[in-house]
C-alpha cells in the first residue's frame, strides 16, 4: 500500500505543481491569446494580465499568415516528412529491436552495444559529415535528405528493445510450434501486443522531428521542401515584422503536435511505463 501523505505535504506538493503548470502554460496561453489580438497590442500587453485576455478576438492574424506565406505548403511538407520518418521508423526500429531482443546471431551483443552508444551522439556532432554525404548523393533540397538519415534511430530501437525483452517468450515459442515464421510471429503476435510502445515511439519521434530545425535548415534551399520550423524562422525575417502573425503561425504549428498527443495519450503513458523511461 502507498503511504498516505500528510495534509500539509499534500498542500505543498499541489502548490509546487500548480506553479510548475503555470510556468509551462503561460507561454502557450500567451501565444494563443496574442495570435487573436491586433498586432499593435501584442507587445504592449505582453507581461500584463491583459496579455492573457483575448478581448476583441479576431482571426485576422491567421488569414494574414496564409496570405503572406505558403503555410499550407510548409504544413504539408512537415506532415509528410515527419509522418514518413515516424511510420518507416516504427517498422525499421521495431524489427531491429526484435532482432536484438529475440533472435540469436553472431555479433548481436556487440552491435547492440554500438547502437546504444549512438544514443549519446547528438545530431550536431554528425551534421557536417552527414551533410557532406547528402551533398555527394545529390540529395540536397529534397524530402529524401530530410527523411532517410533519421528513419533508423538508436533511442527508438532501445525503447522497442526494452519492451520486447519483457514480453513472455512462451508466446513466440507457442507461435513457432504452431507453424509461424519469424516475420509472421513479429507481425501477428509481437506487434499486436506492443501497441503501447509503438504509441510511445511514434509520439516521441513525431515530437522530435516535427520541431527539427538545424538539419532542414542545412539541407533545404528553396521553400518547396521546407518544413514549418525553418519556415517560421524565415517568417520572422519577412518584413513587416508582425508579432500577431508570428504567434498565429506558432499556434498552427503546435496544434498537430497536441492533436497527436491527445490521440495517443493513453497508450503513450502505458508505453512509457512499460519501457522504463524515467524523467
Amino acid at each position: 500500500m502507498r503511504p498516505q501523505r500528510s495534509r500539509p505535504g499534500m498542500i505543498l506538493s499541489y502548490a509546487l505543481l500548480s506553479v510548475l503548470a503555470l510556468l509551462f502554460l503561460t507561454p502557450v496561453v500567451m501565444m494563443l491569446t496574442g495570435s487573436l489580438k491586433p498586432d499593435e497590442r501584442v507587445l504592449t500587453e505582453a507581461g500584463t494580465l491583459a496579455g492573457f485576455i483575448p478581448d476583441q478576438a479576431s482571426l485576422q492574424n491567421y488569414t494574414d499568415v496564409f496570405t503572406r506565406t505558403d503555410f499550407l505548403g510548409f504544413l504539408i511538407n512537415s506532415l509528410f516528412i515527419t509522418s514518413t520518418i515516424v511510420i518507416c521508423g516504427l517498422l525499421v526500429n521495431a524489427l531491429a529491436a526484435y532482432a536484438f531482443a529475440r533472435l540469436h546471431w553472431r555479433g548481436r551483443d556487440l552491435l547492440f552495444n554500438l547502437v546504444l552508444a549512438l544514443m549519446i551522439l547528438p545530431l550536431e556532432a554528425i551534421a557536417i559529415p552527414l551533410f557532406y554525404g547528402v551533398s555527394l548523393l545529390g540529395l540536397r533540397d529534397t524530402y529524401l535528405a530530410q527523411i532517410l538519415p533519421f528513419i533508423a534511430n538508436a533511442f527508438s530501437i532501445y525503447l522497442f528493445y526494452s519492451f520486447f525483452i519483457g514480453l513472455p517468450r512462451e508466446l513466440e515459442e507457442a507461435a513457432r510450434l504452431d507453424g509461424a515464421s519469424t516475420l509472421r510471429i513479429f507481425f501477428s503476435i509481437i506487434l499486436p501486443n506492443s501497441k503501447p510502445v509503438f504509441a510511445s515511439v511514434a509520439i516521441l519521434s513525431f515530437l522530435m522531428w516535427w520541431g527539427a530545425y538545424l538539419w532542414p535548415l542545412m539541407v533545404t534551399i528553396g521553400p518547396e521542401v521546407r518544413p514549418l520550423p525553418v519556415a517560421i524562422a524565415a517568417f520572422y525575417t519577412l518584413p513587416p515584422l508582425q508579432w500577431g502573425d508570428i504567434l498565429a503561425f506558432g499556434v498552427m504549428m503546435v496544434a498537430p503536435v497536441l492533436l497527436v498527443f491527445l490521440l495517443f495519450q493513453r497508450w503513450f503513458v502505458r508505453g512509457v511505463a512499460a519501457s522504463g523511461i524515467k524523467g
Binding site: 513472455p168 512462451e170 507457442a174 513457432r176 510450434l177 507453424g179 509461424a180
Partner: peptide, 14 residues
Amino acid sequence: PQKRNLAMVFQNYA
C-alpha cells in the same frame, strides 16, 4: 520447431 509437427502446452498456457 514448426517442422516437427509437435504441439506443446506451456506452464503459463501462452
